[in-house]
């Protein structure tokens, strides 16, 4: 923010950050929880991009996945259920110099915080928003979430979830000014990492849905897909998520140009198979953070300006 305050750190710009520089408290998620994989991929990304820990902010809501910031040694904001995006918006509007990541669960993002989700897509402020979607409320012990499959039995809908699940991809792709939508899965670490890297590099609001298993409550949900990579269709393109190491395992591939919104919407709508990859990217969308960048004004200038204002009201 203030250039002079950063100056003493210039020597340290030679700092090289290793994994340990980003490690916070020991993660307390259940063994086998998909959150662990996401944390690992994120740490790998932080190292690869050499993000300064003090310039990086992770904002989360409430839920299992929202403990995420505690397990990193960056700045973190573990706030309210559903409200990570407004906090992240405030951070980024006031401090555009910071790198901001948002971690939300499916209840957080798609239910209680849905209003903020829609508007954050439209604001298109430069940040990475991760939806850690295990299709269940875990922390409060197995209640139906908006993404719970129809018929799936939970403690609040014990005879099976009544409605078809909300599709976070079509919701996002259907929102005005959408600029980056990708889907990946925690059990495909190479794809997860490559997706997060593409999201980080995108200039705008990157929305990444990460399919996850909850070892306690939705263990079997993706079991077939985990066992049989053939059930997964990778969206591939030179401008998409590029992870060559997956070529031999995931042979079921579809070429999709991520600049093609119509095609992205069709692919997202079709629920007959699980698709991982970059659905859409458009860096020419309006960016609220760029539109709202105020000038730097010194104290003396402020006082002079305010005196001019008072002149209008002078008796």
């Amino acid at each position: 923010m203030t250039q002079c305050a950063i100056l003493p750190m210039l020597d340290d710009d030679e700092r090289e950050f290793a994994l340990g520089d980003y490690e916070g408290a020991v993660a307390r998620w259940c063994p086998g929880c998909g959150d662990h994989s996401v944390l690992t991929a994120v740490e790998k990304l932080l190292v690869a991009e050499q993000l300064k820990p003090e310039q990086t902010v992770f904002v989360s809501g409430i839920g299992c996945s929202s403990r995420f910031p505690h397990y990193l040694k960056t700045y973190g904001f573990h706030g309210l259920h559903g409200r990570a995006l407004p906090v992240a918006t405030g951070v980024k509007l006031h401090r555009p110099d910071l790198d901001v990541f948002v971690v939300m669960g499916d209840g957080d993002c798609c239910s209680i915080g849905a209003a903020h989700w829609i508007h954050a897509i439209r604001y298109n402020i430069h940040m990475v928003a991760m939806l850690l979607d295990n299709s269940i409320y875990g922390l409060t012990k197995k209640q139906t979430s908006p993404t719970t499959p129809q018929g799936f039995k939970t403690n609040t809908q014990p005879f099976g979830s009544f409605l078809p699940p909300l599709n976070p991809l079509t919701t996002t792709l259907g929102t005005t000014n959408v600029s980056f939508v990708a889907q990946t899965a925690e059990w495909v670490p190479a794809h997860l990492y490559a997706t997060l890297r593409a999201a980080y590099r995108h200039q705008g609001f990157s929305f990444v849905r990460i399919l996850q298993r909850c070892p306690m409550y939705t263990q079997g949900m993706y079991e077939a897909a985990v066992r049989d990579p053939g059930m997964i269709e990778l969206l591939v393109h030179d401008d998409g998520v590029v992870a060559p190491e997956l070529d031999k395992i995931y042979r079921n591939r579809a070429t999709h140009d991520p600049s093609d919104l119509d095609s992205a919407r069709r692919l997202a709508e079709d629920s007959t198979r699980i698709r991982l990859g970059l659905f859409y990217r458009n860096e020419s969308r309006a960016r609220y953070d760029l539109l709202r960048k105020p000038p730097k004004v010194t104290s003396s200038e402020r006082i002079a300006l305010l005196n001019q204002e008072l002149d209008h009201y002078a008796v």
Binding site: R83, P86, V87, P294
Partner: peptide, 23 residues
Amino acid sequence: GGILHQAEDEIAAVGVAIGASYS
């Protein structure tokens, strides 16, 4: 040098203010 942000709702408005203050 200021930003007046019209948020999507009252909750977001205070959330944005808190995010800015925090940072």
